[in-house]
């Protein structure tokens, strides 16, 4: 499998990463290397093997339904680039 430069551009866009043409070429080679590695894994017959969702074979520990977090709004707002009226401010988003 080999990615085109267009596909690299799309992946970068989805991840909000800006790439120069030179970087795109280098990333394309790296990604193709990873895909070659995956292709080797895919060649193995895994019929009947339960897909592994996590590297550690233990199950999720659960938390009791209790409110344990205090309100630390002022601390958090203080480290935000911009805040007003208790809100985080971000560049205008319009649907």
């Amino acid at each position: 499998m080999s990615l085109s430069l267009d596909e690299v551009g799309r992946i970068a866009r989805l991840a909000r990463i800006a790439l120069t043409p030179k970087e795109a070429e280098r990333i394309r080679e790296e990604l193709n290397g990873i895909l070659d590695f995956v292709a080797q894994l895919q060649a193995i017959d895994t019929a009947g093997v339960i897909p592994m969702a996590h590297a550690v074979d233990v199950v999720q520990r659960l938390r009791e339904d209790c409110v344990t977090e205090a309100d630390r709004r002022e601390d958090f707002l203080a480290i935000a680039p911009e805040a007003e009226a208790g809100l985080y401010l971000v560049p205008k988003v319009i649907e």
Binding site: R63, T68, E69, D71, R72, R73, F76, G86, L87
Partner: peptide, 28 residues
């Protein structure tokens, strides 16, 4: 539920903005 699905912050409706958003919820 009283608390959030992945954190211990409260879920009550109508609180002042960001008073029920802990470090997990704001993704520190």
């Amino acid at each position: 539920t009283k608390s959030k699905i992945f954190s211990g912050a409260a879920t009550a409706f109508g609180a002042e903005p960001n008073r029920q958003a802990c470090a997990v919820d704001i993704a520190l």
